[in-house]
Simulated scan of single mutants.
Amino acid sequence: MTGDTVSFGYEDVAPAEKTRRVGEVFASVARRYDIMNDLMSAGAHRLWKDDFVRQINPREGEDVLDMAGGTGDIAFRMAARGANVTVADINPDMLQVGIDRAAARGLTSLVWREQNAETLSFPDRSYDAYSIAFGIRNVTDIPAALREAHRVLRFGGRFFCLEFSTTTWPGFGEVYDLYSEKLVPRIGEFVAKDGASYKYLIESIRRFPPMPEFARMIEAAGFARVKYRPILGGAVAIHSGWKI
């Protein structure tokens, strides 16, 4: 965020403009979102999500808020472990995809809520864990969303975030940049009929803070014992913190 603007890909725009345009992006890609994830990561996103949920370690009877969880990928994994999962997303199109997928699986225990991560309607200390996977970089005011995550967690609650970041592996970063900036929008155009949205999603990764900087933002929101674990040298990272 710079002054009165925030980043939308490589552009700097007014906060309300980013919120509107991000909404349009996800409304456009919702029905093809999971297919595109498979194509862009060669299926690796499934392994990352499995690892992410193992790190969260949801237990039977725990209350978990899965923010930006529209399509249900993380929620389904946590519900299978017996957790009571509320799936929240600002985008109704993404939520509908998840609701339809849950119905096809016969899952009736999940709670679905349209929510803005920056201004959650849930009471203080409502959840044992808060998860957000590949969603925090699309939030307009990230510090506000982190403060809200801290507010809705109970004491002893845990915060986990899975997000793209910046790889530190020599040579790999250049190859990854070439692939993502040149090929991903073309795949998006071919499969989702929307190359522009995938161009934004790649640019949003480039503008997201490096791992140490994002860890400091989590600490500034009030979390303790903050740490991060890079995957693929930091192309993807799992950040975590505790409310104590």
Rank of each mutant, 00 (worst) to 15 (best):
N84R: 09
L110H: 03
L183P: 00
R154V: 03
P143T: 02
G241I: 04
A215M: 14
D89Q: 06
R225E: 10
Y33S: 02
A145T: 11
H150N: 07
F8G: 03
D38W: 08
W242V: 14
H239V: 11
P170S: 07
V13A: 08
V191C: 13
Q55M: 15
E189G: 14
P185G: 00
F172E: 07
G234F: 10
W169K: 13
P92G: 07
I142C: 04
R59Y: 04
F208T: 10
A133L: 05
F76N: 01
L201N: 12
G135Q: 02
F214V: 03
P92E: 08
V87Q: 00
A75L: 04
S197M: 12
A102L: 08
R101A: 13
K182Q: 11
G70P: 00
G135T: 02
Y179S: 06
G69F: 00
I231P: 01
A79T: 05
E24W: 02
I231Q: 08
E24P: 01
A235K: 09
T19I: 09
G98L: 01
F208S: 07
D66R: 02
K182M: 07
R59W: 04
F208H: 08
T2E: 15
L162T: 12
R101G: 09
H239I: 05
N138A: 08
S126T: 02
F164P: 07
F172I: 09
A68R: 03
L146D: 07
G234H: 08
H239L: 09
D34G: 09
R225G: 06
F159S: 03
G70H: 02
V25A: 01
R225N: 13
A42H: 10
D38Y: 07
N37D: 04
D128E: 01
A221W: 01
E213L: 06
N84F: 01
A196G: 11
V175M: 11
F172D: 06
V64N: 01
H150G: 05
A80G: 09
P210W: 14
M40K: 05
Y10G: 11
S180K: 10
K227H: 08
G233V: 11
G188D: 10
L110V: 12
D50S: 12
K227I: 02
P58C: 14
Y198H: 09
T71F: 00
